[in-house]
Structure formats: structure tokens, C-alpha cells
Design a protein around this nucleic acid. Structure first.
Lengths: 209, 209
DNA sequence: CATATTCCATAGTGATTACTATGGAAGGTC
DNA sequence: GACCTTCCATAGTAATCACTATGGAATATG
């Protein structure tokens, strides 16, 4: 099976790996369309982004959006997954760091860089697109919260290799708070230099291992 | 003039201070209604909260909401103002702190306590209710961003009394990032003890004055 | 008690929302 | 070239949205 499927969504599918049986070919590039949707959700958030805005940004019509992604919720999930498998994953960042402090710093640095890209919206898609929401979006909000708690758990586990558990929980929580907070500061206009200075300040109190 | 007026909204008005000239009396308590609206905006955010939900929570009908507050945007601004004039204002907190570090700690503590109230939604209304939003809400988002930047500017000015300006900017930014971030952690389920531990961790690297 | 003033309940308005029915278009296959 | 399969454009659907028109209710005043 050459296509990645998650939650009944075809996430990554190479055309040549999927033998076509005839029929009209897609007139749009799925990855490019998903990328456009991701940026709009990143900039405006999930509920404030309408399907009309999505289809306009993606360059397709509503029936094409629904045929390719299922519905707005699954499109959003696909956008989040695409976001999370960007340059480097959290596992890679934490796994490659020599020390827990290095892991924290690398996560903070990646967040600061990601929050202030020149060709991407300010802030972080995971941190900002569903901070609050209606009752109807509660399940989706909880999915994002679960992803964030998972990231924190991985960092805490890494820190616990060098610090006692209580210390590890506070340090991991502090790092997550700064990551979340820098996203909003970036959306409020803070530039990369400022966020990087905040990263250094956040690490200044790191206890010796 | 015994009524406080802001942005053409009557914000605080004592009935006895406003001589009535006849006519049907209000059948709802304006402060209680505003309080209910504030909690709903705090929990769900501005755009994800409908007027139907607001009127249900406030115990009034749409014409009463529009008569008392003007429109949804002005109701939201009134809710934010009510939120900001809660127990203690930022000026009071910063003004009463003996040192800049105390000011930072007191702001962080107030945020941690406010984020985890027993009878209020988790998180912070100012930090979370319009992190992202549609183009139509851009002006309102910018108003909240301006309020947040104003808080940071006051803290930075206080810190600059004891530290050089570059240090003050990074320290104030770090405190704001943690305040913002703790709001989301609280919405994700973090309890008060955890947030208070994060506050201590955040202050661990404070440079000597 | 009639009138004036202010407020409320009901039933809307016009626009927007997520999503879809249907006929046609664009290919592949035999 | 006819048929099959897949996709697209258009024009919707039913529900929801922020907001309001209108007649009645509840007071104060003279």
C-alpha cells in the first residue's frame, strides 16, 4: 500500500504509485492545495476560516474539496499533520539532542524560527488555530491538546533522564508555556530576534544536570 | 456624569445614579448579564460564540442585548474591560511590587491563579479569546494585541529600572510568553499546582539587580 | 385614567455557513 | 468511437449567522 491513510484520509499519495483506472485526471495538485489550506488555517484558525475562503485559496471548488478531503474537519486534520511533518519532527529534535537542555533549546529554537517565517503566517498552527472554540469543535480541540500534551510528555521523559521527576515536569511545562506564548507574541508582531532572546532567557535558569 | 462611558458603551451604571423618566424597567441585571457573556467569551472565544448562545447565557433576548450593548463586538469589548478591571489591575500589581522580579512574579502568579479558578473557565480571556480570527475580526484582534503589548511595555519599563534595556526586553518578553502559554496549558488541563511550579521555574534564571 | 417613555417577545431579515445533487468534461479501455 | 470511470462547474440545500421591525408590556407622570 503506497498511500498513507489516516482517519480515512489519504494523506500522502504519489500519483505514479497509484495506478489509475481511467477517468478524468485531477486538475489540481493535492499537496499544493493542502499547503494553501494549511496556511489559511495557520493564519486565521480553524473556525474562523470558511470553506469559501479555503476553496478560493486552494484554487478548487467545494465538490473537489469534499471529494479529496471528505469535509472541513478532515481537511484541517490533514493540514495539521502536514504541518507536523515539516522540516523535522519533535522526535527527531529530542532524539538528536546530546542533553535535555539541548533538546529544550532546540525545540524552543525551532518554534521561534517557525513562528517567524518569511513566507508563512506568524505563530504556530498547532499552538494557535483552536485555542478556543465552539462546543461543536470540542473534539477537534481536544485532539490538538492531546498532540501538545504528547510533545510535553516526550520532553519531560527526556529531561527526567537527567533531573528528578518534579523538576522535569516544571521544566517541560515551562518550555511548553514559552513555545505556546511565543506563538501569540509572533502574531502580535514580535520578530525573530526577540523570540530568540526570549529562548535564551527561558534557558538561563536551567539547573545543572 | 455618573455613568462610565467607553467606546459609546455604557460600562458601569448605577441605577440610583441615573434618574429614570418613566418607562418599563430593565428586567435583567446588566452586570450579571455582562458577567455571563464574559465567561462564555472566555471559554469559547469571540468568533466561536454566537449571539444565540450569548442571549441564552445572559437570560435576555436579542433586542435587549442590542439595546444594552450595541452589537456583539461592543459586548465583547465590555466583557474584556470587565475582565481587566477584576481583582487587581496590571498597574496595581506592577506598582506595588518592591522589585522588578517581584512585579514579574506577581504578574505570573496572578495569571496562574486566574487561569485556574474554580468558578471561571480555564485560561485567560485576554490571552485566548482572539488568538486567531477572520479578516472581519482583525481590528478587534489588534485591539487585544495592543492591550497585551501595553502590559509588556509597562513590565519592561519596570524591569529597565534595574536592568539594562536589552535584558529588560528579553525578560519582559519571556514573562509575557509564559503568561500567554500558561493560559493554553490551563485550557489543555494543567492544574494550578503545575502552573505555579512553572512560575517558579520561569523566575529561576532572573539576573541579580 | 390617559398619555408618554422605555423595555420585551416574537417573528422575522438578508447574508453566510458547511455541504451536495446533477449534468457535463476529460481522460482510459476495448 | 462507444462505453466506463473519475472529476469539475454550477446551482443549489437546510441551517445558522448578526441583527431588527413591530406590537405589546410595564412603568412614571400629570
Amino acid at each position: 500500500m503506497s498511500a498513507l491513510v489516516k482517519d480515512n484520509i489519504v494523506i500522502a499519495m504519489k500519483p505514479s504509485a497509484h495506478p489509475r483506472r481511467g477517468g478524468r485526471p485531477l486538475s489540481f495538485d493535492r499537496d499544493a492545495a493542502l499547503d494553501a489550506a494549511m496556511r489559511l488555517f495557520w493564519q486565521q484558525g480553524y473556525e474562523a476560516t470558511s470553506v469559501a475562503e479555503l476553496t478560493q485559496a486552494m484554487g478548487i471548488t467545494p465538490p473537489s474539496l469534499y471529494a479529496a478531503f471528505g469535509d472541513k474537519r478532515r481537511l484541517f486534520r490533514a493540514a495539521v499533520d502536514r504541518y507536523l511533518t515539516g522540516a523535522r519532527t519533535v522526535e527527531q529534535i529530542i532524539g538528536e539532542a546530546p542533553t535535555a537542555r539541548d533538546a529544550a533549546r532546540d525545540l524552543l529554537m525551532a518554534a521561534a524560527l517557525g513562528d517567524t517565517g518569511e513566507s508563512t503566517p506568524p505563530g504556530c498552527l498547532l499552538a494557535s488555530s483552536l485555542v478556543t472554540g465552539s462546543a461543536e469543535a470540542a473534539a477537534l480541540r481536544e485532539e490538538l491538546a492531546e498532540i501538545r500534551r504528547g510533545i510535553e510528555a516526550r520532553l519531560r521523559a527526556r529531561i527526567a533522564q537527567e533531573q528528578d521527576p518534579g523538576e522535569a515536569e516544571a521544566l517541560a511545562g515551562h518550555v511548553m508555556a514559552v513555545i505556546q506564548g511565543m506563538s501569540t507574541l509572533a502574531k502580535d508582531g514580535a520578530d525573530r530576534a526577540k523570540l530568540l532572546a526570549i529562548v535564551e532567557t527561558a534557558l538561563a535558569g536551567w539547573p545543572p544536570g
